[in-house]
Design a protein around this nucleic acid. Sequence first.
RNA 1: GGCGAGUUGGUGAAGCGGCUUAACACACUGCCCUUUCACGGCAGCAUUCACGGAUUCGAAUUCCGUACUCGUCACCA
Length: 553
Amino acid sequence: MTENERIELANLLYPDLKHDTKYYEEKYPERKLAEGAMVTRYAPSPTGSVHLGNLLSAFADMVYARQSGGSFYLRIEDTDQKRMIEGGIENITSVLHDFDILPNEGYSFGGDYDPYIQSERTEIYQTYIKDLIIKGYAYPCFMKEEEIQAIREEQEINKTKIGIYGVYAVDRDLSLEEVKSRIDQGEEYVIRLKSFGDPNKEIEIVDCIKGKMKFPEHNVDTVLLKKDGTPTYHFAHAIDDHLMHTTHVIRGDEWVSSLPLHYQLFQILGFKPVHYAHIAPITIKDQETGNIRKISKRKDPWFGVKYYEENGIPIDALHLYLATITNTNFEEWYLNNSDKSIEDFHFSFDKQAIGGTSFDEAKLVNLCKTYFSRKSGKEVYEETLEWAKKHDFEYAELLEKNKEDMIQFFGIEKDGPRPRKDISKYSEVKEEFSYAIDELFEKENYSKYDGDKVYDVELVLDYVDNHLDLDTNNEEWFNQMREFALNNGYAASPKDYKNDPDSFKGHVGDICEAIRVMITGRLKSPDLFSIMKILGKDKIIKRIKMYENVCIK
RNA sequence: GGCGAGUUGGUGAAGCGGCUUAACACACUGCCCUUUCACGGCAGCAUUCACGGAUUCGAAUUCCGUACUCGUCACCA
């Protein structure tokens, strides 16, 4: 086709476009940002639920834009109407809010580069396609599905490269007359790239994370516009990231193999190339096979985003985990800078793992425990209450009813430089602190006690009635406890007992253990005296009697 | 099959030619501290970096092969 014929064809295909490419170029000028500012984007498609991998890339987008004083925007890639799921878009934005990974621009966040949803940008894509047709870089292709399938099979047998290219691209050089008549006959068509690549030549592409990579040039006539006139991912990526002036495309690793295509698209469109940063997917080592595999929602519940909310994993702790897998040196930094937050850390692409990142659940749990240990009793109370209001209404009520006590319970052993580490999720608080609330304690009814001893109720009752002083400090209390132990034939310290076991019935620890079991129903608990102080004498006595009734027959 | 990438302990991983008889964290084990647990302290946990060869005075680190794993090869993103 001559240039004039191509112009005629372009006008035939797209007669009603309101603007030309120049218009869009002027409408969307570059942002006025400081040198080095990064513009990133999270560009999900509403075809399924959000998972940890999505969150990880959105997190990286946010962090890089934020630290460079750039912009992080949300773009909805809804070009596949068939796979759209109901509520998919709302789900994306609500997850972003829930997990506090907030774009400062984009779909539902506002901004000057709208529309930020691809289904509303059809005319823009068509405008650029029209331009490519005129330039001879794109053409309508009428091939039927069966035809393509047949070619594919043939290629498989011949072990040649699969795809529509070279001699297989039969509609590549159709005459204008033929195109016209096929359209008149109502034949459907897609727009394909007229690729000029030479697969014998190599191109080198530098990825911010993976470094230099060499590929053969792209030579497949990839579909740019589908039958329904909407763009494929590749074309939309080129147009949108150019017009929205993305500086760094941070996306999943599954895209690296289309890099030669994207590179070529930017070339023929005359766009300034963007930087790419391909993140390796989160993987897991399968327990049965020992192979690394992609995570499955069924086998790996933590992969779905719901898991975190339902189990009550704090968002900040999850951020910490995302940060540790985003930059390999984050973990150590955070350990040495416990007073600082993620915002103070400087992320960089070359500290990003190149290979697959395995999910380490134990590490997440530990991070959560550390997170909780650094929270005051009041903070733990408030956060747990908020979580319980959504997931355990009964517990939420109990928490509200016992507010002051609970704040104190949650604060035990939290004030020192080495705070207590026991909880890792909001969902564990109820069980962990069941002794703090009468209703729960009674329901539990000493079922948590897993020892086989029977304790001396009389002794403990005597102690509580006649010797226990709750208006003192921990040290004073323990001294009195030692004295009481001694007076009753128990050693004042485990060491004394060890040195001369025959002279004693036991040691202080044994008496403490008896008290602990009676008032908390378990062998392990936070500091005993602190618990007794909050409980008060009446409740302590009540529980000792309860123990007698339940455990002594 | 083509193309691209990865392979370091129980786990996540650092390292990117000599400072490594392999950092750090988590997990686990033992001891210490201690009224229990937790915290904390100490110690143990890869003589070795998938395998084979090459380069080098010197390699986990560079190169070449082999194996395995992952990604991709749609009018899905």
